[in-house]
């Protein structure tokens, strides 16, 4: 799996795919695209990196526990829904918008970003789980 060609291509592709994933995430605002697709594209980049690199290096690169990234994404999504309740009369998940310099920003974007993080975190958890050696099972109770 770990050939020279794959390693060198990944070096270039990794950044490119990540940029593309963010573009897809933001494009989802008004056109087809969005957090889930963007997250999937980003997790392709991460999976490529996991294939060629040592899992330890990947963990060092992403800095946080991927599971925590997913949890943070989930809390962002919930938070974006709560903003709908807190700011004036709406119900859970009703959209709120602000306009900064002609660009409309709103809670749906926050929600999408949360979904993005969840997908990246979850996929990375699974991929790392497969690549890393199995943890030693607890000694007691296994016959």
């Amino acid at each position: 799996m770990n050939t020279l060609i794959l390693r060198e291509t990944t070096r270039v592709l990794f950044t490119l795919i990540l940029v593309f994933s963010v573009a897809t995430l933001l494009r989802g605002h008004d056109a087809p695209g969005g957090g889930f697709v963007g997250g999937l594209i980003a997790s392709i980049a991460c999976s490529l990196y996991v294939f060629v690199a040592d899992p330890k290096d990947v963990r060092r690169l992403v800095r946080t526990d991927p599971l925590k990234t997913a949890a943070a994404g989930l809390s962002l999504a919930v938070l974006s829904g709560l903003i709908g309740i807190l700011s004036g009369g709406g119900t859970f998940l009703s959209g709120q918008w602000v306009e900064i310099g002609g660009v409309k920003l709103g809670t749906p974007l926050l929600f999408d970003f949360g979904v993005y993080l969840v997908v990246v975190g979850a996929v990375l958890t699974f991929v790392l789980e497969i690549k890393e050696p199995a943890p030693e099972p607890p000694a007691r109770g296994d016959k």
Partner: peptide, 17 residues
């Protein structure tokens, strides 16, 4: 998709153990 990913890891771990 998520269930399938989970199941793949489960099958892989089961095979290992």
């Amino acid at each position: 998709f998520s269930v399938f990913a989970f199941l793949l890891v489960l099958a892989f771990r089961t095979y290992q153990r």
